[in-house]
Design a protein around this nucleic acid. Structure first.
Lengths: 137, 137
DNA sequence: CTCTTTATTTGTAACGATTACAAATATATA
DNA sequence: TATATATTTGTAATCGTTACAAATAAAGAG
């Protein structure tokens, strides 16, 4: 696993402690955390960390393609350091977000003439295996 | 085109003036309007209309599958009365949302065992034809 | 028709995620 | 060491949405 600070440097981002900490945390986690979850997780070890810095950092990382911004219509955003092409499944019962490690389909043929495709986001929803077992949900 | 009030009745929803007005407006428009756009559009003809009623009505319509709630990560929701299976393309340059009248792919095979698929939302982004013509955007 | 109950609408206040902003701090450059 | 630039911090503001209770409208019983 490549050092986090190194990745930042390679993308022309100065690897401050805050930026490195946020990216390292995100790379070590599979839960697609929210801003607040990230902030709360890092606070104990970084008592001077500001919520604004987390916001700023995530925007910077997202702009530079180091992080994926996920929107499941929950009213807040989630972040994912795994930028490989994959999809997400959100269980409408327990709210958990699962990675689906299949690349989203090639959609370039769908577009009208002259349109240029940049991003494809395939969001699936339904009930996960655990919740499906529980009846009447 | 089926009468709007009739559609509501068929879904067990009492066709109040407000509900009928909101749904009729949404069915006559191809712009995926926001709550505020709907509210502002209807206000002149319905001066007593409340923003809360628009919110309530859209939630009710959405629950009953009469309306699609769209989230493009703009910080607010958009609504679409066309519930046929199709995708959306949002131009990151001009912000316009285009209908792509192709059904989203069948994704049931992507899911792990025991998962039940309910909804598939395929959101495309990039630059539309008009914005692509303009250089340096 | 009234009376009573229920459903719907309305407006205001609260909420919560995000953003704006300016002061404080850290880092780089001369 | 001095100066300029970048980054962080904390507070206040913004804005879409939701909660809530009063007001109004509609439905049902007698």
């Amino acid at each position: 696993m490549q050092a986090t600070a190194e990745i930042l440097t390679q993308h022309g981002i100065r690897p401050s402690i805050q930026r490195t900490t946020v990216l390292r945390y995100l790379r070590g986690v599979k839960t697609h955390p929210t801003v607040d979850e990230i902030y709360q997780a890092l606070l104990p070890e970084n008592p001077s960390l500001s919520r604004t810095t987390v916001y700023n950092t995530l925007e910077l990382l997202s702009e530079n393609g180091l992080v994926l911004t996920l929107d499941f219509g929950e009213g807040f955003l989630r972040y994912d350091a795994d930028c490989s092409p994959h999809c997400h499944f959100r269980c409408s019962c327990c709210g958990h977000v699962f990675d689906i490690m299949t690349a989203p389909p090639d959609c370039s043929a769908m577009l009208p003439k002259g349109f240029k495709l940049k991003g494809v986001q395939l969001s699936l929803s339904g009930t996960c295996a655990a919740c499906s077992k529980t009846r009447y949900v």
